[in-house]
Simulated scan of single mutants.
Amino acid sequence: MTAPPAPKIELHVHLEGTVRPETLLSIARRNDRPLPRDTVPGLRELYAFTDFDHFLRVWAMTTNSLLTVEDFRRVVVDYAAEAARCGAVYLEGIFSPAERVARGVDWDTVFTGYTEGAVEAEQRHGVVVRLTPDIDRSLPVELAEECARQAVRYRDRGVLGFGLGGPEGAAPAARYAAAFAIARDGGLALVPHAGEAAGPESVREALRFGPARIRHGIAAARDPDLLAELRERGVVLDVCPTSNLRTRVVPDLARHPLPELLAAGVTCSVGTDDPAMFDTDLDREYALAAALGHPPAAAFAAGLAGALCDETTRAAVAARGSAHHGPAAVDSPAAAPAPVAPRRPGH
C-alpha cells in the first residue's frame, strides 16, 4: 500500500493559474472566448511565454476566459483535488476579481463562484480553502478601492486577506494606500507581492503597510538589514521556486536565494504560484525547497505560521501536520528540523 503524502500547506497560489490547458480550452469554447493557441491543448503551446513581462500578457489573455459562477467554482474545486493528491490540507487561494469586472463580469459572480468553490472543495477533498483576492498595480485607483470593499463584504465567507500583484514597475504600492486601508479596516490582512522581479526597495515599500506576509520577497536576500527587519517583524515570505525559474527572475536553481533567506532566520512558506502555467505541483515545490535546505516539516511549520485563518482552524490544521511530522514541527518554524547548512543543488 502506498503511504499517504506528507501534509502540506500552500499560501501562494493564483487560482486562475491552476487551470490545466484542457479545462481552459473547454471553458473558453463554452464562453466563446478565443485563446492564443486555441487549437492545440498542449501546455507548452497554450501557456508559452519567454520572460516575466510576457508571462503577464499570456496571463491576461487566458484568464479572461473565466466568466461565470460555475467557471470560478470549478477552478477552486479542481485545484483542491489536485493539491489534495499532493497532501495539501490548507490553501490560501489568490484571485483577481477586478480584472474580471473590468471586462464585464460583476463582483458577485466572481466572489460567489470562488467562495462557493472553497466550501465544496473542503467537503469533497478535505482541503481547507481560504481566499485572498488581489489587485493589479495597473488598476485605476477607484476600481482597486471598490475591490477592497467587495472583499470585505465576503469576509464571513472565507475571504481573509487582500493582496497586490502585477508588474512591480507599473506603480508604487503607495498608489493603493486607500484600498489597503479599506481592507485593513474591514478586518482583512495585507498580503502584497513584492521583491519578485524588482529589488529590495520593493519589499521595503510593502513593509510600510504592515503586511502579514509578503508574496515572493526573494530580493530581500540582497539586503542584510532588510533580512533582519523581516526576521524581527516575523513577516513570512511566500517562496515559489519553479515560478522564479520560469519567469527568469532567478537564472537557475543553484542560485535561488531561499538558502540565504533561511540562513538569515526569515520564515518562508512554499507555494506553486501558477502551477498549470509553470507545469508544476505542490509535491515538486516542496521537493525543490527541500533541495535548497527547507525540508517538508519546516515548510509546513512556516505555512502554519503565515496562515491567516482563525485559531480553531489553525489548531485543526496543526493537528494534521503533527500526526505526520511530529508535534515540534508545527509549533513554530524555528522548531522544524533543518540542515546546519542549506545545500545547493548539484553541490
Results as ranks from 00 to 15, higher is better:
139 L>E: 14
202 S>A: 12
271 G>C: 02
249 V>S: 01
201 E>N: 12
271 G>D: 00
169 G>S: 06
162 F>L: 03
277 M>Y: 09
67 L>R: 10
215 R>V: 15
199 G>I: 00
239 V>C: 07
15 L>F: 13
323 A>Y: 01
40 V>D: 15
283 D>N: 08
300 F>Y: 15
128 V>Q: 11
171 A>D: 06
331 D>H: 09
198 A>M: 12
96 S>W: 03
237 L>G: 07
341 A>W: 02
204 R>Y: 12
3 A>D: 00
177 A>R: 14
24 L>T: 10
180 F>C: 02
248 R>H: 15
323 A>P: 01
185 D>V: 00
297 A>T: 15
54 H>G: 10
206 A>I: 06
162 F>N: 13
176 Y>W: 03
253 L>M: 08
114 Y>S: 00
214 I>K: 08
119 V>F: 07
322 S>K: 01
160 L>Q: 13
345 P>D: 02
183 A>W: 05
85 R>N: 13
109 T>C: 04
321 G>T: 13
337 P>S: 15
118 A>S: 13
7 P>K: 13
124 R>T: 14
77 V>C: 09
343 R>L: 07
339 P>A: 15
12 H>E: 04
21 P>F: 11
325 H>F: 15
126 G>A: 04
78 D>P: 06
181 A>H: 11
265 G>E: 13
39 T>C: 03
229 E>W: 01
267 T>Q: 08
341 A>H: 08
53 D>T: 15
29 R>E: 11
153 R>S: 12
238 D>N: 02
172 P>C: 05
270 V>W: 06
32 D>E: 13
335 A>Y: 01
256 H>V: 09
